[in-house]
Design a protein around this nucleic acid. Sequence first.
DNA 1: GCCAACGTTGGC
DNA 2: GCCAACGTTGGC
Length: 152
Amino acid sequence: MINYWLMKSEPKAFSITDLQKQGFTVWDGVRNYQARNFLRQMQPGDLAFFYHSNAAPSGIVGLMSVVESNVEDHTQFDPNSPYYDPKSSKVSSRWQTVIVQFVEAFPNIISLERLKQEFSDRELSVLKKGNMLSVMPVSEEVADKIIAIADS
DNA sequence: GCCAACGTTGGC
DNA sequence: GCCAACGTTGGC
């Protein structure tokens, strides 16, 4: 069974265009336990919507697929990384993530404003006010609708 | 840049 | 275990 997800990134840091150029990426830097727990649940073949946050406008800009799960986030061991976690050790590491592959960039962004018109914050938790999760699940029903909007 | 909402930390 | 202080996220 395929599960659907939504993953946020600030395009100034890493955008859908960057992912398209690279083809795939290690989704590192997540330092929130709830988001990490979702990353741990991901399986190869799962699909994830790429969401641009802190953008003009913010919204869903494309689709990617999970190619490898339970991947070590090496930035936690790197003292020079902004994501360095001195409390983590290689024996019992705290932060795991996934490798994602570019699938498509939508011809038009599905803006946050549009998403709010189409879905309630119960259907799509990224719409919840104050939601700071950078990784969250999306139901199959909502995912199908998002893809239909992207294709229209 | 502002600021509301939230998660984390650490003193007690 | 409580909770105030602090840092971060992210829409606007």
